Amino acid sequence: MSDTHHIAVLMGGWANEREVSLMSGHGVADALESKGHRVTQIDMGRDVAARIAEAAPDVVFNALHGVPGEDGTVQGMLELMGIPYTHSGVATSVIAIDKQLTKQALIPHGIPMPGGRIVKSEELFERDPLPRPYVLKPVNEGSSVGVAIVTEDSNVGNPIARDAAGPWQEFPELLAEPFIKGRELTTAVIDGPDGPKALGVTELIIDNGFYDFEHKYTEGRTQHVCPAQIPPAIAALCEDYAIRAHKLLGCHGTSRTDFRWDDEAGEEGLFVLETNTQPGMTPLSLVPEQAKHAGIDYPDLCEMIVREALRVHAANGGADG
């Protein structure tokens, strides 16, 4: 970026991922200041529109995670205000945060994702929606918030007991998917002058359980192997699927696509779980780690995301789309 800007970094909010968002936002703010930009940090409250209007930034760096910062709500507000913002636009955000809508957008284009269906939580107390083992997750939460794996020897009962601890206590509807055994992989995509580029593949090896919210954000609970020690054909397929998902969903700036790979099944065992339109930017986050391995340091990564926001805004005649 040849000149400097006044950048408002929007963070915090009231979603389950508030603390993660604050870590991302503070890191981004420090990085952008180190590059000479003027930065205003905004911890989002209900008065967010007034605070952004008062700050009058050139561009907003959206470091929010979860609802309402990642689901199109904040994006729509910023478009009404006519302010450029980072990451994906309204339509993309609405689709990508909804796991069922994401399937409808990607599967018809040949991107493999687990099957499954939406179930009322009340139904779970009568019968299993799928053969065990299966996964239950909220339709529109990120960072593995509210994910449960139901196995034959789960301590939740069979069928699930009404008083058992789990996401069915918090969410009236859940997405049920078959459990895919195997390895956890992820690929970040960054937009640049030549279009979207995959930054590599990381394997996530956890100490026990699965890659849930605690494992994602507690140091020492998950080992990041970057680059992943996997066959070149699987790495290439991860990068291909991640770029295609980024394009099909209409992502901007950066995205991260998560996979499960049953290594006993080869290429047929690779499945996309979701595409995250606003990946974390904390010290433990995967996008900065992959960018560093690709030769892009953290401040430059933040600037690249801002640069793309300004490009998209200008290309759309002042609307981010």
Rank of each mutant, 00 (worst) to 15 (best):
L175I: 09
E219R: 14
Q229C: 07
I160N: 10
I230H: 15
V156R: 03
H215D: 12
T202L: 04
V119Q: 08
N140D: 15
I160F: 06
K197W: 00
I206V: 14
I149D: 05
K137R: 12
K216Y: 07
V156S: 03
R132N: 03
V147E: 01
E122Q: 12
M113I: 14
L130V: 11
K120H: 00
D207V: 12
R117Q: 10
F210T: 14
P159N: 02
G220V: 13
T151M: 11
G157C: 10
T186W: 08
C226S: 14
P178L: 04
L204W: 00
S121T: 10
I118Y: 08
G142E: 06
L185S: 05
G115E: 03
V156N: 01
R127M: 00
A198L: 08
A228W: 15
V189K: 05
T151F: 05
P193Q: 04
V145I: 15
N140W: 11
G142Q: 06
T187K: 07
V150K: 05
P193M: 01
I205S: 05
V139G: 08
I205E: 11
P138L: 09
Q229S: 13
V135R: 03
T222A: 09
D128R: 01
M113D: 14
L174T: 04
G142V: 13
C226Q: 13
L124Y: 06
R132C: 03
E170Q: 09
D191T: 12
V147H: 07
P167E: 06
Y211K: 02
A164K: 09
R221C: 03
F171D: 11
Y134M: 00
E203Y: 01
I205D: 07
I118R: 13
V225H: 13
E214A: 11
T202D: 07
G195M: 01
D153Y: 14
V139E: 13
L185N: 08
A198D: 08
L174W: 02
C226L: 15
G166T: 10
A148C: 08
V139H: 13
L175A: 07
G182I: 03
P193N: 04
T218V: 12
A228E: 12
E184T: 00
P133C: 05
E177F: 02
Q223L: 08
Y211S: 06
Y217W: 13
I230G: 10
P227H: 12
P227N: 09
Y217M: 04
T218I: 07
K137E: 04
P112T: 02
P167G: 07
A164L: 09
F210L: 04
E170I: 04
P114G: 02
P129Y: 02
P114K: 01
G220T: 14
R132H: 02
F171G: 01
E123Q: 09
I149T: 07
P133E: 04
A161C: 07
K120S: 00
D153N: 15
E173M: 03
M113L: 10
P112K: 01
R132M: 06
E214K: 12
G115Y: 01
K137M: 05
R183S: 00
E123D: 12
I205A: 05
